[in-house]
């Protein structure tokens, strides 16, 4: 589904990604862990089409297409979703208006019929219920005045509404209370299927207890320095990153 080869990226003259190789097959869950500043968010945003990064080398293909040729909205329509580490506020634009515009824009790009107001409302309310959110939030501005945890939960709500194929979740677990973490994890699991894949960026084992990864990778200094199964996350939790970086 996703195939990243030898990806190098730079921002403001600084090389951040220095040769990433990563393949994610359909239905797989991959976790990426790694020290602060190692390039995890950079990789995530780059996949979603952020235009501030210059790609100096490498290729990324998604479902057979050259991902780097597509703009963010085209990538979204193709099924890439980024759960932001720091979700953005858009004051005065209600969550409802935003989500409807997003879903219908994607459907339009894909040549599908746009949902009318009634169908959309039913669909979004169904998802709001699954995320155990107050439907009143739909008429509030996008993330406007939301608490840190509420913003993260809203990211997952958007994901459930949009039903993407590749879910890139950048520290969605950070800042969530214990109950909210469980709800968010349930939301992710709800979306898992043979056709959908997940890339989880996280610092903690907690989320991985709920959403079992097939592979765990360690990103350090802009490279994947170690890959393994779920047990690697447990080992990291115990020993930290020092031993890998020394070995690498």
């Amino acid at each position: 589904m996703l195939d990243i080869q030898n990806l190098h990226a730079r921002i403001e003259g600084k090389d951040i990604l220095q040769g990433i190789d990563l393949r994610i097959g359909a239905g797989e869950v991959h976790a990426i862990m790694g020290p602060n500043g190692s390039g995890k968010s950079t990789l995530s945003k780059l996949l979603a089409g952020h235009e501030d990064y210059t790609i100096t080398d490498g290729t990324v293909s998604f479902d057979g297409a050259d991902l780097l040729e597509l703009n963010p909205e085209e990538r979204a329509a193709k099924g890439i979703f980024l759960g932001f580490q720091y979700p953005v506020e858009i004051p005065g634009v209600s969550n409802m208006v935003f989500l409807k515009a997003a879903l219908n824009a994607q459907r339009k790009i894909r040549g599908e019929k746009e949902l009318d107001a009634a169908d959309f409302l039913a669909w979004v309310k169904h998802r709001v219920k699954q995320m155990q959110m107050n439907p009143a939030m739909l008429s509030r501005g996008v993330n406007e005045g939301f608490s840190g945890g509420e913003k993260k939960r809203n990211e997952i709500l958007q994901m459930l509404v949009l039903e993407p194929k590749l879910m890139v979740l950048d520290e969605t677990d950070s800042g969530l209370d214990i109950d909210a973490l469980k709800i968010v994890a349930d939301g992710i699991n709800l979306m898992r299927s043979k056709e959908r894949s997940v890339l989880l960026v996280t610092h903690y084992q907690r989320l991985l207890d709920y959403v079992k990864p097939d592979y765990v990778h360690v990103l350090a200094g802009g490279r994947i320095v170690k890959s393994g199964g779920p047990e690697l996350a447990l080992e990291l939790e115990e020993k930290g990153y020092g031993w890998i970086q020394q070995a690498a």
Partner: peptide
């Protein structure tokens, strides 16, 4: 970027 990443032109 946030809006575009959700599919909005």
């Amino acid at each position: 970027f946030y809006a575009r990443s959700r599919g909005i032109a």
